[in-house]
């Protein structure tokens, strides 16, 4: 990359740090240079977040309609997938899928609810009482 072509666009990193890129000019050697960001990759990140928010919203609606248990919502809210949630809880994927059925979820023991609550960093009450409404406090 040419030194003068290094983009300096605004990005989510702006208040935190600038990133190192490697640039060179004709006839000179490679050197490190700092960039604040690049529009192109900011767009890609932005799109990935739009998708995440879409998934969270879908999960919220599913919980509100009573099709899924709060486990699904908090999993999406915490950007987790099954392997990650498995790692945090120690439950198998098929168990977690079962726990996402409202009927099964209602019968879960306090111990299991506690494990989920810890993984999502919320209280057991919060997990149990979540009904798909008032999600403002989660999506800051």
């Amino acid at each position: 990359m040419k030194k003068d072509k290094l983009p300096q666009d605004p990005s989510a990193l702006n208040k935190v740090t600038r990133e190192v890129c490697y640039v060179k000019d004709d006839g000179s050697k490679y050197e490190q240079s700092l960039s604040t960001g690049w529009k192109v990759k900011a767009d890609a990140l932005d799109e990935a977040w739009k998708e995440i928010n879409r998934r969270i919203e879908d999960a919220r609606i599913a919980v509100e309609k009573g099709e899924k248990s709060p486990v699904l919502f908090f999993m999406e809210l915490n950007l987790m997938d099954f392997p990650t949630l498995s790692g945090y809880t120690g439950f198998w994927k098929f168990s977690i899928k079962r726990h996402m059925k409202p009927k099964v979820f209602r019968k879960l023991s306090e111990k299991k609810l506690g494990i989920y609550a810890k993984a999502f960093k919320i209280s057991i009450d919060e997990l149990k009482s979540f009904d798909g409404k008032n999600i403002d406090k989660y999506t800051k």
Binding site: M1, L6, L13, E19, V20, C21, Y22, V23, S35, W38, V40, K41, D43, A44, L45, E47, A48
Partner: peptide, 16 residues
């Protein structure tokens, strides 16, 4: 495609 762009250009890659 966004995934490719991020793996390719995101912080940590030094660009390209």
């Amino acid at each position: 495609l966004a995934q490719i762009v991020r793996m390719q250009e995101e912080i940590g890659t030094g660009g390209g």
